[in-house]
Amino acid sequence: MDQPALDLAPALAPEPRLDGETLQQWVFRQLRRAVMTGRFPPGKAVTIRGLADALGVSSMPVREALRRLVAERALVLLDNRRVRVPEMTARRFEELVAARTLLESEAAARALPRADRDFLRRLDALNRASDAAVEADDTEAMIETNLAFHAALYGDRPDNVLLPLIESVWLQIGPFMRMALADLHRHYPVDRHAEALMALEAKDEAALRRAIEADIRDGIGHLMEKLG
């Protein structure tokens, strides 16, 4: 028997619309971010109507946003106007982790030429915010600050090719981030972001790649044991 659809209204916490942002763009941005930050729990279905009510909009922009997220393999469409996170196998998860490692280590290496003092200062501030979130055991802040650190490292440029590809992988792996954080202290004993910052400052590409690979492995790679 199908489980009742999950009420995501308390979890969505929609942000204000940006200047010039259409309603359709805003709805897509909110739902895409919700998937990426794990607000769609694995195995739980949600309804189009429930999401529309949570965002205070009609079903039409929600349906369009979900269609795009299904195309990105972030969600699957069920019957009765419901969606859920795709089922995850150990093999699929391993491939997603491998894709993260390959794409993100390359994107980090490409950041080296622009790693000036201001760039490093910004990353250091984001890392300190991430450390504070861990210290406070604030799951929401841990996820948000971690994504912010990585996005800032890889660069937010109009001509950036790698970041959209990386975000596509984040969409598929994001719903499992909360599961990974449940046992963070045991699997993440070293501050890999701090290692990455030191490598950036030293202009050491090999050390930077190792830090990013270790960050992904320690942060979420251990979930392969649970999915196996």
Rank of each mutant, 00 (worst) to 15 (best):
D19I: 14
A214S: 12
R217T: 15
R128C: 04
F119Y: 06
V27R: 00
A11H: 07
V83T: 08
H185E: 14
M1T: 12
T89L: 05
L171Y: 09
A199H: 01
E64I: 12
A98P: 15
D138L: 02
H193L: 13
L12T: 00
R63P: 05
P41K: 08
R122N: 09
T145M: 03
P86G: 09
G155T: 05
V83W: 04
Q172R: 08
L78H: 00
A211F: 09
L75I: 11
A109Y: 02
N80C: 12
I212C: 06
L96C: 05
T37Y: 06
E72N: 13
L181I: 04
D19G: 10
R17D: 01
D53H: 14
K226C: 14
R84A: 04
L8Y: 02
M198G: 13
R49D: 06
L153G: 00
A133I: 09
G56W: 00
D204N: 10
G43V: 08
V83S: 00
S105Y: 07
D7E: 07
D137Q: 11
R91K: 12
G155Y: 05
V161E: 06
V62L: 08
L223Q: 03
L31P: 03
L23N: 11
I216Q: 01
H185M: 13
L227W: 01
A180K: 03
L126R: 00
R110D: 06
L208V: 10
L102Y: 10
F93W: 11
R39L: 15
N80R: 13
A180N: 00
P14R: 03
I220R: 00
A9L: 08
G219P: 01
G221K: 00
A132D: 14
A206N: 11
R186F: 04
L153E: 03
D137R: 09
R209N: 06
S168T: 11
E167I: 07
R110W: 05
N160A: 15
Y154F: 15
V76L: 11
W170C: 11
L171V: 05
R157H: 13
A207H: 07
L23R: 14
M60V: 12
D2V: 10
L78R: 00
L55I: 08
M36F: 08
A13K: 10
L12H: 10
V83H: 01
P113S: 04
L78Q: 02
P10V: 11
L66S: 03
M142A: 12
H193N: 13
I212S: 02
E106P: 06
R209Y: 05
V85S: 03
Q3N: 12
N160Y: 08
L66G: 02
I212R: 02
F176Q: 04
D131Q: 12
D53G: 04
A109T: 03
L197F: 04
